[in-house]
Amino acid sequence: MIYSAAKLRERLEVLHGEYLKAGSRKHLNQMVLIGHSMGGLVSKSQVQDSKDKLWVNVFGTTPDRLNLPQAQLDSLRTYLEYKANPHVSRVVFVATRIGAAISPRAGAGPLAAGWSACLPT
């Protein structure tokens, strides 16, 4: 999921740049993501700041306490550190179990609860 979230973040940035070049700015910062199941979790990562939570979940500590070469730390930062995408204004979750899929240690919490909705089938 971490890899997929990073790839989505990259692709959304490319898409945003393409719309800027085309001169289409009316709704440029109002992207809406719709994610089903695991896609919902990947989409959720676009509206959150990771802080050091992923470092702690993966390595048991923060990056400054790891004895890794700077090149490796920089490579890992691509996947483990991110800010909320300012171009995404909303996320719609479909059949995504936010609270059960990610533990509170991994970052699920009030933000996730505020963004999720139960849709009738």
Score class of each variant (00 low, 15 high):
residue 115 W to S: 02
residue 102 I to A: 12
residue 21 K to Q: 03
residue 44 K to L: 09
residue 74 D to A: 15
residue 102 I to R: 06
residue 32 V to H: 13
residue 96 T to R: 07
residue 42 V to I: 02
residue 76 L to F: 00
residue 35 G to I: 05
residue 80 L to T: 05
residue 100 A to C: 04
residue 80 L to C: 09
residue 47 V to L: 15
residue 33 L to D: 01
residue 106 A to W: 07
residue 40 G to W: 00
residue 92 V to H: 07
residue 70 Q to A: 11
residue 91 V to K: 07
residue 11 R to Y: 11
residue 112 A to S: 14
residue 84 A to D: 05
residue 9 R to N: 06
residue 118 C to Y: 15
residue 93 F to G: 05
residue 4 S to F: 15
residue 50 S to Q: 12
residue 89 S to Y: 14
residue 112 A to R: 02
residue 65 R to S: 02
residue 44 K to A: 03
residue 40 G to E: 01
residue 48 Q to M: 06
residue 57 N to D: 12
residue 99 G to A: 12
residue 104 P to L: 06
residue 121 T to S: 14
residue 38 M to E: 11
residue 121 T to M: 09
residue 93 F to Q: 02
residue 59 F to H: 06
residue 112 A to Y: 07
residue 39 G to A: 12
residue 24 S to T: 12
residue 119 L to N: 02
residue 12 L to R: 02
residue 63 P to M: 03
residue 15 L to F: 10
residue 73 L to I: 15
residue 69 P to H: 08
residue 42 V to S: 04
residue 60 G to N: 00
residue 19 Y to I: 09
residue 83 K to V: 09
residue 22 A to R: 15
residue 68 L to C: 05
residue 88 V to W: 07
residue 24 S to D: 13
residue 17 G to R: 02
residue 53 K to F: 05
residue 14 V to C: 03
residue 18 E to R: 15
residue 56 V to E: 01
residue 27 H to G: 02
residue 116 S to H: 03
residue 3 Y to V: 12
residue 2 I to D: 14
residue 91 V to M: 00
residue 47 V to N: 09
residue 114 G to A: 11
residue 121 T to I: 02
residue 114 G to P: 06
residue 46 Q to S: 01
residue 69 P to Q: 10
residue 95 A to V: 12
residue 20 L to M: 15
residue 10 E to Y: 11
residue 54 L to V: 11
residue 48 Q to Y: 06
residue 111 L to F: 07
residue 52 D to Q: 11
residue 37 S to D: 04
residue 61 T to V: 08
residue 42 V to E: 02
residue 84 A to K: 14
residue 89 S to E: 14
residue 88 V to K: 07
residue 26 K to N: 15
residue 61 T to F: 13
residue 118 C to N: 13
residue 111 L to D: 07
residue 46 Q to D: 01
residue 100 A to L: 00
residue 41 L to G: 03
residue 72 Q to L: 01
residue 79 Y to S: 06
residue 32 V to C: 06
residue 20 L to D: 10
residue 18 E to C: 08
residue 119 L to V: 04
residue 111 L to R: 06
residue 7 K to C: 06
residue 19 Y to C: 07
residue 31 M to D: 12
residue 93 F to K: 05
residue 51 K to A: 00
residue 44 K to I: 12
residue 27 H to W: 00
residue 53 K to D: 09
residue 36 H to V: 13
residue 72 Q to M: 07
residue 112 A to P: 10
residue 51 K to C: 03
residue 28 L to Y: 02
residue 74 D to Q: 15
residue 33 L to W: 06
residue 82 Y to G: 05
residue 118 C to Q: 07
residue 97 R to W: 13
residue 20 L to C: 05
residue 92 V to Q: 10
residue 55 W to A: 06
residue 44 K to Y: 12
residue 20 L to E: 15
residue 111 L to M: 08
residue 107 G to P: 00
residue 70 Q to L: 11
residue 104 P to S: 01
residue 97 R to F: 11
residue 29 N to I: 02
residue 30 Q to F: 03
residue 91 V to P: 02
